[in-house]
């Protein structure tokens, strides 16, 4: 029996202080949201509904139903549609771009700065660090979706009449319920991005160059969307993480249909599980040479 199996001597670091380590998560969130880059992305997201609303307000011509992005024709009648329109505009490119930046930066960014070695020597624990990083990225997805929603609601209310909303099914719901549905849409979009976030985290464990990981994550999201429009690959479509991204229209029907919410969640959880395992197996054995 080697001495490494001997019980710890009394001069051991006090084990009672060994907490769950929520402090690291707090610190991660603080570092993420203190960065100017994060704020710049959130401001850019907030500008999308503002630009949309101002453009609609200033233009004299009224849109025919169905012209322009979905919901845009309804914006001038009811300001509450600004947020939905902005969501549709942001989902294919701009939201994945911000997620790519945040998720791609998780591990590679720390490696690039060299702080990864100090976190691990502290010791942060590799699995714990992955979990904290993923939680931070997921929180960013939520904040990004809420930014679009809140900014859309505010500018919509400022520039257009606000009243009971006519849903896609033709039913009319109160302002309060339509706001709740906006939050539901934000939740849907947040969940939609969880798969991509995990893909970004995995890619981030592969390199010490954060820009590379960010670009690769964004490319993956674009490729998935291209595959999604090729009819010959229709068998693949339900398995693409981007397939249900624009499916939140179901949340704007009466009665509320949570079917696509569920399908979307299942796909996202599958992606998170697969790429989470890949990130784990890659990261726990990785030689930290940065």
């Amino acid at each position: 029996m080697s001495s490494s199996d001997v019980p710890p001597p009394e001069n051991d670091v006090n084990p009672t202080h060994r907490g769950v380590g929520w402090d690291l998560l707090g610190s991660e969130i603080m570092v993420l949201f203190r960065r100017r880059r994060t704020w710049a992305m959130l401001v850019a997201l907030a500008l999308i509904p503002i630009l949309l609303a101002v453009a609609v307000r200033l233009s004299s011509s009224t849109l025919d139903p169905g012209e322009g992005p979905p919901f845009l024709d309804r914006v001038s009648q009811n300001g509450l549609f600004v947020g939905f329109t902005a969501m549709v505009v942001a989902i294919p490119l701009f939201l994945p771009l911000t997620i790519g930046v945040v998720a791609g930066d998780t591990i590679a960014g720390e490696a690039g700065l060299g702080t990864l070695r100090y976190l691990l020597v502290a010791p942060a624990g590799r699995v714990r660090l992955l979990l904290v990083k993923y939680t931070g990225a997921a929180l960013f997805c939520l904040v990004a979706s809420l930014t679009l929603t809140v900014s859309g609601a505010l500018i919509g209310a400022a520039l257009f009449p606000v009243g009971p909303v006519t849903l896609l099914s033709g039913d009319t719901v109160s302002v309060t319920e339509s706001l709740l549905r906006s939050l539901l849409v934000a939740a849907y979009v947040t969940v939609s991005l969880l798969g991509l976030s995990m893909i970004g985290l995995f890619i981030s464990t592969l390199t010490d160059v954060p820009v590379g990981a960010m670009a690769a994550t964004i490319v993956v999201s674009v490729v998935a969307q291209i595959l999604d429009i090729i009819p010959q690959l229709s068998w693949l479509h339900p398995w693409l993480f981007s397939h249900y991204w624009l499916g939140f229209a179901d949340l704007l029907r009466q009665p509320l249909d949570l079917g696509s919410f569920g399908q979307n969640a299942v796909v996202q959880v599958c992606y998170a599980a697969v790429f989470g395992s890949l990130a784990y197996s890659r990261f726990v054995t990785k030689d930290i040479l940065s």
Binding site: V13, N14, P15, H17, R18, G19, V20, G21, D23, L24, G26, S27, M30, V31, R34, R35, R36, L113, G114, T115, R117, Y118, L119, A122, P123, A124, G125, R128, L129
Partner: peptide
């Protein structure tokens, strides 16, 4: 190696949170 956008003290606090014993 540090986060250039954080202050010296904030950097130390950040790295300190990584240690669950701290």
């Amino acid at each position: 190696a540090f986060y250039p956008f954080l202050s010296g003290a904030a950097n130390l606090r950040r790295l300190d949170t990584a240690d669950r014993h701290a």
